[in-house]
Design a protein around this nucleic acid. Structure first.
Lengths: 238, 238
DNA sequence: GATACCGGTTTGGTATCCCAAAATGGTATC
DNA sequence: GATACCATTTTGGGATACCAAACCGGTATC
């Protein structure tokens, strides 16, 4: 029987036909990033199949794609949601710094005021009434969109990929209002230097921002490991 | 019928059990990188299925993986071997420079003489009697292994991925003996600076090497576009 | 109580079948 | 000769059936 109950409706989003594979991939990614499925949890193709009303063929394809994003991994024969790995987070920070700084330097060489205005507007859209989740999302998009301005597809994808991998950890981070404010100030300073085309200054500020961000993140997670463990989240030490 | 004729034998390489997916992926990658299937050529799942004696399920899985490597891409509904894209090659050079330099700087901070000896021995293994194909392979492995020494998995994978994407283009490049000698000299100079832990010097030489390499590559391919076209290879302009 | 063993169950890997959409090729029309 | 049109074939997307290996629970043995 080729009857697909609910998934096919969810698929047609604004009349946009989506393949089952894309559906499963998107929904599963959201569940993983939204921590609806905890880091370290086991996944079976059959569970996913039942959960999303798709057969194993698209499920399998989606898993293969998510594997390349580092969101799921193989555990022997089966599938596992990737645990939070502190050592990996530190390595990603180094990687991020390399690609983001390179992208930013490129951008500074042909800074486009309008494009920078758009990014600044993103930052402005967050105020004290904004949900924590939104701050989180905008904080990542800032880096991603900034990298996009470089015009280099590879640097852009590298940054986007790195942010995706950091996403869950950053969501788990206990962040106070002050830290968020500091981050936003740093974002604005980076933008300002970029607008002026001052590559060295922008690069320096971005590096500092990334390193500080990494330190706060790793410290927070290391301190809260007990709490995370209690929620059933696998956390691998640095 | 679940009978698998020859593929299963090729699979057990030194008693090493390999899944059909891995088999198809590896063989197809080799055919693409070895230009046995030309850039721009159309692929059908059914052709691959028949060619390697595997069913469509592992074939599709392999294609999905190769897609993330950039070796195949989607052309509407079907699959295509990625064409040689000059603009992309230039972007990859920028990307490479960012990640390779970052990796090299890390390596310089904890330079391991023995590890560097191993890489130098790789270079030494090439002489006037060495096949062109071997020079080609060692030239890539030099960069990959050097990146591995950084200890950063992400930088390493980024370099490996970049070299894979450059591989076919470099193989197509018309390279004279002199250019090869110059490249090897640059490799040795980079190693020497790295051995001394002179990060700035090593980084400078690596940057120069990459930029020079890019220029020669793009120029060569642009000049030879007619010849490549004649061989049935799709080449997209910068 | 710990452990080794065994049979049933689950699960990923694979082959195969069906379908709708897209490509193809031949034909009639202008 | 070019073009629009229709029948046929091909092809990728998806669903399902089957298998071998891994997993699990219970039992017997020490």
């Amino acid at each position: 029987m080729n009857f697909k109950p609910a998934a096919v409706n969810a698929a047609s989003e604004k009349g946009f036909a989506m393949s089952q594979m894309q559906n499963v991939e998107r929904q599963l990614r959201e569940m993983i990033l939204g921590l609806e499925i905890g880091p370290g949890e086991k996944l079976t193709e059959r569970w996913i199949e039942g959960r999303f009303g798709a057969s194993r063929t698209p499920v399998r394809a989606a898993l293969l794609r998510l594997e390349t994003e580092g969101l799921v991994g193989r555990d022997g024969r089966g599938w596992t949601v990737s645990p939070i790995n502190l050592a990996e987070l530190e390595q990603i920070a180094v990687y991020r710094e390399a690609v983001e700084v390179a992208a930013l330097r490129l951008t500074c060489m042909h800074a486009d005021g309008n494009a920078i205005d758009v990014i600044e507007a993103m930052l402005d859209s967050c105020d004290e009434n904004t949900a924590r989740e939104e701050w989180h999302r905008v904080g990542m998009d800032f880096h991603i969109e900034l990298a996009r301005l470089s015009g280099n597809e590879f640097l852009f994808k590298a940054v986007r990929d790195a942010m995706t991998r950091l996403s869950r950890a950053r969501w788990l981070e206990v962040r106070d209002e002050a830290a968020l404010g500091r981050a936003w100030a740093e974002h604005r300073a980076i933008l300002a230097a970029t607008r002026l085309g001052d590559a060295d200054e922008a690069a320096r500020r971005l590096s500092t921002h990334i390193v500080g961000s990494r330190d706060r993140l790793v410290t927070s997670l290391a301190n809260d490991r007990r709490g995370l463990r209690a929620r059933g989240f696998a956390v691998v030490a640095a």
